[in-house]
Design a protein around this nucleic acid. Structure first.
Lengths: 307, 307
DNA sequence: CTGTTAGCGCTTTCAA
DNA sequence: TTGAAAGCGCTAACAG
């Protein structure tokens, strides 16, 4: 059977309320008694019944993380990392990636103090005091969020390329996405900027389109909207006898810039976002002041870019 | 303030235990009364307090899913899918992908009836009645698990290739993995079978090694240990003027075989595994008989294989 | 069919 | 410094 505070109380010859206090490290119980109880609890294999605790207090240290698109690498890294960070700050992270209703129910069961939405949709959780949307486009402008950040990163990368003599660029994106092209078209200093949109799943066509495009003109830089596209571009480039980066630099956006990438990247670090999120959550829940950390665009430059 | 069954009881002029029964759809309460109470509950915005319910019953319909490597696409798909399937069967899926201790605590809070370990390690959860390891190598041999399944799939693919005249093969794997080569070396009917191991992150070397290898001899088939490797192989092959599949077929193992892949795949379907898992969990928890479904190796063949 | 009552394990006054 | 007692919201006998 499970061990309760009553069992411990009996063994320790104290009342069960004393045990409760000892277990919560209350100053109202004498140190030796406390130690004795703690030791006994450990020995007897006591585990707190959280339902009872939540019922009695109406509080919980659980934090919900809602991530409907966990199969997206970027969110997965963020979720993993934010879990770790929350845990370090004494919270209990609880992920839901099934339906919205599921998430709502689970979070309400756990009486979460906060839910973090790892998605670009601004999903709401009505009965939660505090819902945070680090990835949504409309987040309060006090801080840099994902949306602003990826544009900043793109512009920073473009600026670097411009300053190192890159004058023409080819933007390679997936069909559904044109933010990169739009951003660079408007705010960068390339003389010529072309856009090639491809279907990531049709590798044969991708190869052909890219080859045809490069057969006509070689841009100074190929800027891809994902790491995967950049890897394929790299191989296609090599196969066309292109010297990378002498003839043409290759760089890509990535939502999880890290140092072990084979191609140069710009973007942001999901890990750092995660740490910032955890700090923010901690501050809000504990009603502390929070100093917004400006997350910076990140870049990993390696031999695929000519500087 | 939150609405409790007592509030409803007062409004409805019944005792609160009647409300409890009505809310649990007990046959012990007259239909009109039940309807009245249900309507009232809805109107008043009643939400059950799960902590109280768990405390009172000692039971919960929550199922834990432990997935430490959620950034692995294959597990991510599985987790997503198993969540959906469990939900459909009336369970509440709860994912943890942080530390083991986190997971244990969260699962104990939720009083999960079962935990599913989405990992190849056979991780145990001591205080849970029922822990299921669909991805571990040592699972009971009553059913085909991930481990058996990937070998079966590889052999089935090899057999198909053999029967359609492929006599020589090049196995392309990442450095840390040689199961594919070992399996095919031992049990397939290729005359010649070579192994090239590459580092997925060093795309430049990957290109060179693969090019050098193919410059010497062209195998009838290139069998890759991941979809990503196959995509790169495809592009390298094209760039060398290789006609795919006339000169050489390309196929890859994938833990999540689906029809939208640009290259031919063999492996299994995480989605089907997920459905089987959910069935199994349902049967065990409800003490029903379970008929093991033999999950079958899956294949997606498209133009990259010559038949 | 409906109501009464006694807990589930814990926290938290309040009294000793 | 400790203990007694009430109560968090709900379920589950049992009695009516």
């Amino acid at each position: 059977m499970t061990v309760t505070i009553k069992d411990i109380a009996r063994e320790a010859n104290v009342s069960f309320s004393t045990v409760s206090k000892a277990l919560n490290d209350s100053p109202l119980v004498k140190e030796p008694t406390k130690q004795r109880i703690l030791a006994l609890a450990k020995e007897m294999g006591y585990e707190i019944n959280t339902s009872a605790k939540i019922l009695a207090t109406g509080k919980s240290n659980a934090v919900g993380i809602y991530c409907p698109e966990i199969t997206d690498q970027q969110y997965a890294v963020y979720v993993l990392e934010v879990s770790r960070e929350l845990r370090q700050r004494g919270f209990l992270p609880c992920i839901s990636s099934s339906s919205y209703d599921d998430a709502k129910e689970m979070f309400s069961r756990l009486k979460v103090a906060c839910v973090i939405v790892a998605d670009d949709q601004e999903i709401q959780f009505p009965n939660t005091d505090f819902v945070y949307h680090p990835f949504s486009g409309n987040a309060d402008d006090q801080e840099k969020n994902h949306y602003t950040l990826k544009r900043d990163a793109a512009l920073k990368a473009a600026s670097l390329l411009n300053h190192s003599g890159h004058r023409t660029a080819l933007i390679l994106s997936e069909f559904h996405s044109d933010w990169l092209y739009r951003t660079l078209k408007r705010d960068s200093e390339f003389n010529t900027i072309n856009h090639l949109q491809v279907n990531n799943n049709d590798i044969d066509r991708l190869y052909t389109s890219l080859k045809n495009t490069l057969d006509q003109t070689i841009p100074d830089a190929i800027i891809c909207s994902s790491r995967n596209l950049a890897e394929l571009t790299f191989v296609v480039g090599k196969s066309l006898g292109l010297k990378i980066p002498e003839d043409c630099s290759v760089i890509a956006f990535d939502g999880n810039v890290s140092s072990d990438s084979p191609v140069s990247l710009f973007g942001y670090s999901s890990k750092k976002m995660a740490a910032a999120t955890a700090d923010y959550v901690y501050a809000v829940i504990n009603k502390r002041e929070y100093h917004y950390v400006n997350l910076n665009p990140e870049m990993t430059l390696n031999y695929t870019v000519k500087l």
